[in-house]
Design a binder for these strands. Structure first.
Lengths: 134, 134
DNA sequence: TTGCCACCTGGAGTGCGCTCCAGGTCAAGG
DNA sequence: CCTTGACCTGGAGCGCACTCCAGGTGGCAA
């Protein structure tokens, strides 16, 4: 099975070496295999898990929740329903976040358009005056 | 013109009193009018600006950038092109964020589905084994 | 006039998620 | 062998965006 040095993993995942060590220290990664000399050797399972971590992190899951998920994963197949529940909960949160982002982005677009109208008219015409303020 | 007490503004906007004072202190709000006794009295313009701040904050703009935008707004109509540029830049960032969130959410959905398939099969059948790992 | 509560100020503290550092170890190339 | 650079550990430090606090003031209601 393929193994990877810390710097290879950093390159592949975008996590820094410090972050990788940090995640391991707090228990987000489980113990990583070592060489006889004590150097970490990551394998494909580790990379897979790191991908999951990255996905959850990038969607805004706090580390505490990821730790909970990691713990469930470590505790065998009986926890799968709980894992599903956790992910569904998170999925709903992400859904809301996306929706909120979309509405806020619309506001930004409106504002940009408002500025464009203002500059084209060289002043604030009534047609445009009731747009977003300031 | 309608005016509002700090707690009314907090209720309307969702910002805490401390956050309102903090934003004022760092220059994100400009000086808020005061009563003779020194109490803040916010007006509708302030609320409008706070709405903008909220929109930018919720879409992930760092305070430093909002300060820059606030400064442009204070410096008259000549800065409107710069404001547009800043907002367009931000808009693009938000766009990317939404796109990334969507792809990551897809991964989460896949993972949930994968867990469902696993539990239904009571083990990992080959049909499902090449899905997302761990 | 006296409570009382909302509000004021400046400054210190908090939580999160890393990031940096000092001082040491391991292993491959020359 | 010796150098060199990637890696090790434990712990301290950082940047952001607030949040809390102590000690004091304003103004309305009873």
């Amino acid at each position: 099975m393929a193994t990877y040095t810390p710097s290879q993993v950093a390159a592949k995942t975008g996590f820094s070496l410090d972050t990788l060590r940090y995640y391991e220290r707090i228990g987000l990664l489980g113990d990583i295999a070592r060489t006889s000399g004590g150097r970490r050797t990551y394998d494909d399972d580790d990379l897979g898990w790191l991908g999951m971590v990255q996905c959850l992190r990038d969607t805004g899951m706090p580390i505490a929740d990821m730790l909970r998920f990691a713990e469930l994963c470590r505790n065998g197949d009986d926890t799968i329903p709980e894992r599903i529940a956790l992910l569904e909960q998170h999925d709903a949160t992400v859904q809301e976040k996306i929706a909120h982002l979309n509405t806020q982005q619309q506001r930004i677009s409106n504002k940009i358009q408002w500025y464009r109208d203002v500059t084209r008219a060289d002043d604030v015409p009534s047609k445009v005056a009731d747009s977003a303020p300031v």
